[in-house]
């Protein structure tokens, strides 16, 4: 998928609005039916069927450009990710609490650039959401064409802090790619970690 295609994926080549296929809309429909059931606190088949009818109506009345899924989803990694995420939310909250109470107006921060590996809109959005809730940053600006995020990071005091924040975000992205990135992205990520490990090995051998 070239970046150019991504920019215009709401419209197809002839300039018409692209319609999502039923398969692409399926996760959205399932989610809407679950929301309907949750709101009524009633998961009986009749209620769910009525929810499905309403979901189909809503999806067809208010059309959105299709969300492109990679077709890969690792449930085990997703569960691990969820628990790690919850734990990280706790840590991040206590950190912000500490900073608010004890550091206050003296808190330093930084605006940093992170170039993501992925080209998928869904993954860029997911990374943006997760990093806002977890390490201590939020997205100030997005460059969709190059998948670049500009983040505001709290409690950064020097260049080492900037580099650490960047590494943290790339780590979140790596975990999300392992969970639901496309096969190509996963292969690229594995190749990258392999060369990094080899470089680290070579570095250790080089130093006596």
């Amino acid at each position: 998928m070239s970046p150019q295609q991504r920019l215009s994926d709401a419209k197809n080549e002839s300039g018409q609005r692209q319609r999502a296929t039923l398969r692409q809309e399926l996760p959205l429909l399932v989610w809407m039916v679950l929301v309907w059931g949750a709101l009524w606190q009633d998961f009986s088949p009749g209620n769910l069927v009525f929810g499905l009818v309403l979901s189909l109506l809503v999806v067809n009345l208010f059309q959105l450009p299709p969300v492109i899924l990679s077709g890969r989803f690792n449930v085990r990694l997703a569960v691990l990710f969820a628990f790690k995420f919850l734990w990280d939310v706790v840590l991040a909250s206590f950190e912000v609490m500490y900073l608010a109470v004890f550091r206050g107006p003296k808190t330093k921060s930084a605006v940093i650039t992170v170039s993501l590996r992925t080209e998928s809109d869904l993954l860029v959005t997911a990374v943006g959401h997760v990093l806002t809730l977890v390490p201590g940053s939020f997205v100030v600006e997005v460059d969709r064409r190059s998948s670049t995020l500009y983040l505001h990071v709290l409690n950064v005091n020097d260049q080492a802090g900037v580099d650490k924040a960047r590494a943290d975000v790339l780590d979140i992205e790596a975990r999300l790619i392992r969970m639901m990135g496309s096969k190509e992205e996963l292969a690229a990520l594995n190749a990258e970690t392999k060369t990094a490990a080899r470089a680290a090995d070579a570095g250790e051998e080089g130093t006596p």
Binding site: S93, V96, M97, L99, A100, T107, S109
Partner: peptide
């Protein structure tokens, strides 16, 4: 306490961008 921390953050952090952190993290856990 977490919601209180978010409130304290709103008051104590130096600028708008820092305050947005107080509005997201402790508040979500709270």
């Amino acid at each position: 306490l977490m919601s209180l921390a978010a409130g304290i953050g709103m008051l104590r952090f130096p600028d708008l961008l820092s305050r947005m952190h107080a509005a997201t993290k402790p508040q979500v856990l709270g």
